[in-house]
């Protein structure tokens, strides 16, 4: 075989292998998605939204308390994590500067925090909140999720604010506006869409977390909105139900998985859509 043909053959071999890798990877991912949709929709019924968790075998049985608990945890974490993250990100972009030493350090540390093992965050919050208080609580779960959320919101805010052209700031400063007004009324407005998307994606990200909740908010078989006590969440319920030997609990676990995934993917798609329509303008 001459050199020319060998090069072409080699090219074909590698390209075929890459395509096969892509195909195989996608096949597995779609297998998982297919299983989730099949099992999830199969188990989905109206009782899930109106009835609380019940002992195995008892009808009707649902996930109302877990849905409500999940909502409280995610909203609570966002109420803490979003303002803190946005203001901290504002410091990085508006005061710290792109090349400032402190700002760069904080950026690097938040990037590392973003990938820190979530179960370690859970153990940390257990030590600082659950152990001193003597019991699991919704607040502890909220704090754990907020800690996970902070670096994500901080980095996206920082990135989005840096995209606002400097001339806008200069124009506002030239009119005599104090810096905080420039930030709140000019920079935030300019970056509104990007920041909203970042916040949406960070909410989607923490909503799927299980590990930090295992020993903070724990779980609760009953309907409760009291954040001083253990509270049920979809993710911990999925963990408990999927590892149980009861057929009906396992089915409910798949239904919970489907609801959670639809929420997470829905937020992601919405976020992308917002960014895209903005870019189109």
């Amino acid at each position: 075989m001459n050199r020319q043909n060998r090069r072409i053959l080699m090219n074909k071999v590698v390209m075929t292998l890459s395509s096969l890798a892509a195909l195989a990877g996608l096949a597995f991912l779609f297998w998982i998605l297919g299983v989730l949709l099949y099992k999830g929709f199969g188990a989905l019924h109206w009782d899930i939204f109106t009835v609380d968790m019940a002992p195995p075998g008892r009808e009707p049985s649902g996930l109302r308390n877990a849905l409500v608990g999940q909502l409280l945890l995610v909203v609570g974490a966002s109420v803490i994590g979003v303002p803190v993250g946005v203001l901290a990100g504002t410091y990085l972009s508006e005061y710290g500067g792109r090349h400032g030493k402190l700002a760069r350090l904080i950026r690097d540390i938040s990037d590392i925090m973003m990938s820190a093992p979530s179960i370690v965050i859970g153990a940390f919050v257990y030590a600082i909140m659950v152990a001193p208080m003597g019991h699991f609580s919704g607040w502890a779960g909220i704090v754990a999720l907020a800690i996970m959320m902070l670096p994500i919101v901080l980095r996206t805010t920082d990135d989005m604010l840096q995209l606002v052209p400097g001339s806008l700031r200069e124009a506002a400063i030239a009119l005599g506006a104090p810096k905080y007004k420039v930030i709140m009324q000019v920079v935030y407005r300019g970056a509104k869409v990007g920041m909203l998307t970042g916040i949406l994606l960070s909410i989607a990200r923490i909503a799927g977390e299980t590990a930090p909740l295992l020993f903070t908010s724990f779980s609760n078989n009953f309907y409760s909105t009291d954040l001083n006590h253990p509270i049920a969440s979809l993710t911990v319920t999925m963990f408990n139900y999927a590892t149980s030997p009861f057929e009906d609990w396992i089915d409910l676990g798949w239904a919970a998985a489907l609801i959670l995934t639809l929420f997470v993917l829905g937020s992601n798609i919405l976020g992308r859509y917002i960014i895209r329509t903005k870019k189109g303008k």
Binding site: L29, A207, G208, F239, A257
Partner: peptide, 18 residues
């Protein structure tokens, strides 16, 4: 693929188990 990266990891665990 980017969307699949967003799927909560517990789903992968359930698929693995069952």
């Amino acid at each position: 693929i980017e969307l699949l990266a967003a799927i909560p990891s517990i789903i992968y665990g359930m698929w693995g188990l069952f």
